[in-house]
Design a protein around this nucleic acid. Structure first.
Lengths: 144, 144
DNA sequence: AAACCATCTATAATCATTCTAAATCGACAC
DNA sequence: GTGTCGATTTAGAATGATTATAGATGGTTT
């Protein structure tokens, strides 16, 4: 599934540059964290993770950086939880299970999944992506 | 597509009761608004709409009522905009276009759309629904 | 009319996110 | 090396959607 990898500083630098991002210390640090754990993380998660490490990074920078990474296609925003945005270092096409009760997000490999019959886009629109979220609930813990 | 209808008070009452909801004045008023306009509305939208009408309804009641309606399947929550939740009075299976720039939500009729090859659900999980959101951007208004 | 229970209300609190204005940094000119 | 410039980062305030709280209201039953 997701490949957990450690990148060298040089690889990370190249990765950012390839996406048109100036590789500052903070951005490298955040990128390192994101790709090392290869999970769905919130901005708050990143903020806490980055501040257990050597270099402290401010909350504003965490938000700016995640926004920048997402805008440049280095990571992907996942809007599934009404409370917060998740960021996904996996940019390969894939979908998500979302546990409504716990907020847990899990990948669904896009391989094998087919979506057909979508109508043509409105005039002048470009598709940014298709999000598929399968909402789940553990049936042994009933709603009410 | 969406059927815009005016329900009689009796029909609305029956509708709520059929979903196990005690039909109070405020709930009927909110239901009336929702089904009269048959659009995607936020809680804030509902709050403003309901307070142009005769009966004022508090914000807390708007949130409680929308939550209750969604829980009982009278309307559907749409998580597409990171800033707010939309509520959709159309509970027939369908999907959404989401304009990333404007926040505009548009229906995609499920008829004709096929999603195949989804993996089996995790152990003990029950599917609550599948959300498909096609993110769009107007190509004549570039990103940056 | 007292008790009861659900609902509704105003308002405060929460919490993710964005904004602001000042500090810092790195590169480059002098 | 010092000054300047633009980009970045920072702390902290502000915003805004949503939720929590605790009291008021209303209908129903006895």
């Amino acid at each position: 599934m997701l490949v957990k990898r450690t990148y060298t500083q040089e690889e990370l630098t190249a990765l950012l540059q390839r996406h048109g991002i100036n590789p500052t210390a903070q951005r490298l640090e955040i990128a390192r964290l994101l790709f090392a754990r290869a999970e769905h993380v919130s901005a708050e998660d990143v903020f806490m993770l980055v501040n257990t490490a050597a270099t402290p990074v401010s909350k504003a920078t965490v938000y700016n950086t995640l926004g920048l990474f997402a805008e440049r296609g280095l990571i992907r925003e996942v809007i599934a939880d009404p409370n917060k945005v998740f960021y996904d270092p996996n940019t390969a096409p894939h979908y998500h299970f979302y546990d409504v009760a716990t907020g847990q997000l899990t990948d669904i490999d896009a391989e094998g999944v087919q979506i057909t019959g979508l109508p043509s886009l409105p005039e002048g629109a470009r598709m940014e992506g298709v999000d598929v979220i399968v909402r789940l609930r553990q049936s042994d813990r009933p709603t009410h």
